[in-house]
Design a protein around this nucleic acid. Structure first.
Lengths: 231, 231
DNA sequence: GTCTATAAACAGATAGAC
DNA sequence: GTCTATCTGTTTATAGAC
């Protein structure tokens, strides 16, 4: 009772059941049909709440979008890397051998690939992220600064430790992105991949096949980079 | 004067100036904002024509979308592969040595990468294609059957010829897709790449750096695949 | 073929009862 | 906090003059 209960009491509160339901619906519908393609009526119906709840809890449809961005950043940071981030930082600070660094990179992608590709609850998260980065929205800035940039930096440092290449060299920064690319592609161009592979979906089995190919590519790339840096 | 001039005289006629302007506007705005996000008013204004021209020339907004799909398929087949497709088919029919096949794959991506990444007029084309495949629209089916599938098949056959791997093996089909992935990523996640690389745009210079990394990855992958198939 | 005017549906946002 | 009802503007599509 310290502040008046005006509209939009707290934009970032996934604890409230109505707000939570709207955040889930937003992640799904914004991702599936884009911001313009998801009407407030469809969002409210999907969430099982009243249309006016959007304005009440998030101020506006745009407010809901931004709150979804915060949710996405939180989920990705928590579920994709989780405790791994601290372990990586500790290892990098303590120093790692090339073989250790190589193993850590391979392990990292072995963990990322199945989550990114097969986890059904990640579909809306990734789709939402891609839409936001496409529109250069403030929500994307948050996700970039909080999750993407730190992970890319760690990856470049590991890459340098594993191959002897300079972590800040453009080629290193591009190489690491090109590994991420191979996983992201099967999300983004999923319908192309499904048709080309004759699959009906990307489940655990299919994700494992993709992960195996990415792992093989990664090994080949690391070997080549190491030969390049330490002939 | 043989047929009555009802609405939508011919859905596929990029020759008419008004229809052409609408196709260009459609490719750009559908790609940028999605189908729902591009209003007929915005489309007409961008094209510099009257709103009613959409219904007249394409029957409806949906009709314009499908016509844009046909245009996209035509442009990609023409500008990305062009005469190269026939040359590849002839070479594959005549038979190629592993070294020749390897060179053809490298050449192919050397041609595709700069076009996909740096050509400004390709931005709307690629964006449109990705939106359509995401929505599994009939327009995408056309593009897949007419351009994507034939190119992927050729690539798999070349890959097999270069490495000794089976062209129809899932690993081969996934490997070739994972090379395409590395190029597509820098289009799709362009804003991520720009921020991570400290670039402001992907012009010829930046595209060349990406192409060099992809080329290096491709060599490493081909070497590894060849060792795997012919130890 | 191109235009204006408008119909009919739908959008997001809000006022106010409960 | 949640609801109904409604306001205001915009959407696509169309009818009809030129």
């Amino acid at each position: 009772m310290f502040v008046a209960m005006t509209a939009c009491p707290d934009p970032s509160r996934p604890d409230h059941p109505t707000a939570k339901a709207l955040l889930d619906a937003g992640g799904e519908l914004f991702g599936a049909h884009g911001f313009a393609g998801a009407s407030t009526r469809a969002l409210a119906e999907k969430a099982g709440v009243n249309i006016a709840a959007i304005a009440y809890h998030f101020g506006s449809k745009e407010g809901l979008r931004e709150a979804c961005g915060r949710e996405t950043a939180r989920i990705m940071a928590q579920d994709i890397v989780g405790a791994r981030a601290d372990a990586l930082d500790a290892a990098l600070a303590a120093g790692v051998t090339p073989a250790q660094a190589r193993g850590m990179i391979l392990d990292l992608f072995d963990a990322i690939a199945p989550a990114m590709l097969a986890r059904a609850d990640f579909e809306p998260v990734v789709r939402f992220l891609l839409r936001e980065q496409d529109e250069r929205s403030p929500a994307f800035e948050r996700i970039h600064d909080g999750f993407i940039a730190p992970m890319h930096e760690r990856l470049c440092r590991l890459w340098g430790a594993a191959t002897g290449a300079a972590p800040d060299a453009p080629a290193t920064r591009l190489s690491t992105l090109s590994v991420v690319a191979q996983i992201v592609y099967f999300r983004v161009a999923r319908n192309v991949a499904l048709k080309r592979m004759g699959w009906t979906r990307i489940g655990e089995e299919e994700a494992a096949q993709i992960a195996a190919v990415v792992r093989a590519n990664l090994r080949a790339m690391l070997d080549a980079a190491a030969r390049e840096a330490r002939p």
